[in-house]
Computed example of a mutant assay.
Amino acid sequence: MAKNSVDAYGAAGKTNLLFFDPDGLVLVTDQNSPLYDERVHLPEDEDMARNIDYQGVLEPIAVSKNPETGDTEVVIGRQRVKNARLANKWRRERGAAPIQVPGYVHKGNRRDALDVIVSENEVRQADSPLGRAEKMRRLMAIGRSEQQVAVIFGCKVATVRNTLALLECTAAVQKAVESGAINMTHATLLAKLEPAEQRTKVTELVAAGEGAKPHERARKQRAVLGAAQQRMKTRKQILQELDSVTGERAEALRWVLGMESDAMSTLEEAA
C-alpha cells in the first residue's frame, strides 16, 4: 500500500495549501488596517514578473479574511501577488494558462499581523555576492543560457555577467566584496586587470573607503580607479545612444545590456 505524504517524507504534520487567482486577492492600502505595509505601493518589478512567468510563485503567501468585507486580503507576499498579475497579463496576451498563487491562511490575530509582516521581510539572510556568482556558474555549467540565468535570478543579463566576473577576481577582491568594503562595480572593473594589479588596487580601494561616509567613500574609491576611467552609463543613457548608432557599436551596446537584436523594441518600451 502506498504511503501518504506525511509518512513518505517523514513529516511531522501537514497543512492545506490553497491556490488563488492573484486578481482576486486584495492588497490592503488603508493605512488604518493592521495589514497595511507601505511596500504595497512599490511599482511592479519586471524581473520578478519574468521569473514568476518562467516558474510560477515558489514561496506561498499568507492571507486573511476581512470579517467586515469578506475580502481575502494579503498578509505577506504583496510583491509576489503584484508581479504574478503582471506575469498573467503577459501569459494571457500569448494565450498561455494563467498562474495561480499558492498560499495558506494566517492563523494569528489580525491585529498582530504587523509582527508577521516585519519578520517575514526582515529576518532573512541574503545570499552573498560570491554565493550568487557560484550558483550562476553552476547553472550555466548545466546548460542554462545567460538569459535563462537572468530570469531565474530576477535580474538583467548585464548583472549576470558582472556577477560572474567576481569569479575571475583574486581572493583579495572577492574577500573585499564579501565584506562590503568594495562593491560589485569595483569588482567588475578589477576583473579586467592582471592579478597583481588587482591586489594592489583593491588594497587602495579598501584603504580609501575606511571611515568615510557613503558619498565621500564613493568619491575616494572612484578616484582610486583613475580619472581616466569613464563612469558607467545607466541603462537609459545606453538606450538613448542606441538611437543614434548602428553597426558594431550598436551591437556592442546591446551586448552590454544583454539584449538580443530581435528583442530590442520590447526592451526599449520597458526601459
Rank of each mutant, 00 (worst) to 15 (best):
T159K: 11
C169Q: 09
R161N: 14
T170P: 09
L166C: 01
G154T: 07
L164G: 12
E178G: 12
L164Q: 08
T163Q: 14
R161L: 11
C155Q: 14
K175Y: 01
A171C: 03
V160W: 06
A158K: 14
G180V: 12
A171E: 15
V160K: 03
A172Q: 14
A181P: 02
A171I: 02
V157N: 11
N162D: 15
C155S: 11
N162H: 09
A171D: 15
N183I: 06
R161Q: 14
T159P: 01
N162L: 09
A165R: 11
C155D: 12
I182L: 00
A172G: 10
L166Q: 00
N183A: 01
T170W: 04
T170G: 07
L167P: 05
L166D: 00
G154C: 07
R161I: 11
A171T: 12
A165H: 00
A172T: 11
A171S: 13
A176P: 06
A172H: 03
A181N: 14
K175D: 13
T159Y: 09
G180C: 13
A172D: 12
T163S: 15
C169W: 07
C155W: 06
I182K: 02
Q174N: 00
K175Q: 15
K175H: 03
L167Y: 01
S179I: 02
E168Q: 13
N183C: 02
L164F: 10
T163C: 10
G154E: 08
E178P: 01
N183R: 03
I182D: 01
G154V: 05
N162Y: 05
L166K: 02
T170C: 07
L164P: 09
K156N: 05
K156G: 04
K175A: 15
T170V: 11
K156A: 13
V157Q: 14
K175M: 07
Q174L: 00
L166A: 04
K175P: 01
T159A: 11
L166V: 06
V173M: 08
L167F: 07
A171N: 10
T163M: 12
E178M: 07
N162R: 15
G154K: 10
A176F: 05
G154R: 05
G180S: 14
I182H: 04
Q174V: 02
K175V: 04
R161M: 10
